[in-house]
Write a protein that binds this DNA or RNA. Structure first.
Lengths: 203, 203
DNA sequence: CAGGAATAGTCATATCCATGAGTATCTAGG
DNA sequence: CCTAGATACTCATGGATATGACTATTCCTG
């Protein structure tokens, strides 16, 4: 029941259509959650059934009609309840880290390529976040906005997203440097592994 | 097929039992992945069936017998193949961020409590990671280890985990400061929401 | 005027992941 | 002696997530 609340939180600041939501939850600005269109449409349907959001049809001539969704009082209460429950710690879960973990046993050339790609991706998101933050601040300073700006929630999550991607970029660049240095220097140590069970005494 | 490779990567450096794996993959040192015992035992069984790991029974007298698993040549080849495939970008997915996103509309007292708790948790993991890195380095300097140390993979993922938790801690502390300042200062702006559908003209 | 991107949304399926409970043995503490 | 905790592992179930394919209309470009 996590996507549920992410959708509610996303609809707090503005009325959105399912399609607009999918844009917000995909690579674009998923600063606090990520989901695919199918999940979002399904979740919107459930949320509406449960009365936590209210949809209204908007007839359009230039393009297909759409339904805009707004959080109801019940939805806000549900979010309030959710915000008060204990939060489980969150963990990194990233294929790239799995690959780097095995750096001593696999080809580092491929790793370097992917770390470079990831660094570029992070850089792009950093740009997006920077721009987003500037837009929210307007002409105010960051300190000023943090104290008195409206919509502090989105601003804070955006700051986290920014820091996360900066961490990503810095780490990727460092890892690339390290792996390159090692390639040019000493040969990587490869441990051999067995192919079949070999019964053995206790350790 | 992600846990699969995470398990393989974890078994590269040392032969482990299922139980030891669960310890490594739970809060302790899940620097690159996280999983529950049930998933791990199931995955180990599948990996063994597929010949990617080999288990050997270790008879113990003081405690229940166990099975230690080792990566086979086929397993290493599978990891190699995996490491060469393109990596999807990874996204933050964190309940706490969802809650902070709705900070303008819910009680900030509860949020502050949870941010504080998360900061403490992050601090604890930072301590763990620091210790782990020191252990891996031994008496060498970090630069020295990065250049010539064995097991650079685990060291690099540990560095990422450390940076991630530092980012977590810093952000949580900052968010707490901001939310506290705002509480003592101005009253939070609460937007009202509707409870029923209200058909309306197009935007 | 043909083709592709963008808008707007849906269906089906398979795998992943989390939750909760349960088994059995041994050790250490009160 | 009794209980809690560590070791070592298993089963069942349901909800969350990812993948791939599909419908339909309109706008823009070549």
């Amino acid at each position: 029941m996590a996507l549920r609340h992410a959708v509610l939180a996303a609809l707090l600041d503005e009325e959105l259509s399912g399609y607009q939501l999918t844009k917000a939850f995909d690579m674009g600005v998923a600063n606090f959650w990520h989901a695919l269109p199918q999940q979002l449409y399904a979740e919107l349907a459930k949320l509406e059934q449960d009365g936590l959001i209210a949809g209204r049809e908007v007839v359009q001539e230039a393009r297909p009609n759409k339904r805009l969704f707004q959080v109801t009082a019940a939805g806000l209460a549900e979010l309030e309840r959710f915000a008060a429950t204990a939060t489980k710690p969150s963990f990194i879960r990233d294929d790239l880290l799995v690959k780097v973990q095995s750096a001593d046993h696999v080809d580092t050339g491929a790793l370097i390529a992917q770390l470079t790609e990831r660094a570029a991706f992070a850089e792009a998101k950093i740009g997006l976040f920077d721009e987003l933050l500037r837009k929210m601040r307007g002409d105010r300073s960051e300190q000023e906005y943090l104290r008195h700006g409206e919509r502090i929630g989105p601003y804070l999550t955006c700051l986290r997203g920014l820091a996360f991607e900066q961490g990503n970029r810095d780490w990727c660049e460092r890892a690339v440097t390290v792996l390159r240095e090692r390639r040019s220097g000493s040969r990587p140590a490869v441990r051999t592994t067995v192919a079949t069970q070999q019964p053995d005494g206790p350790e």
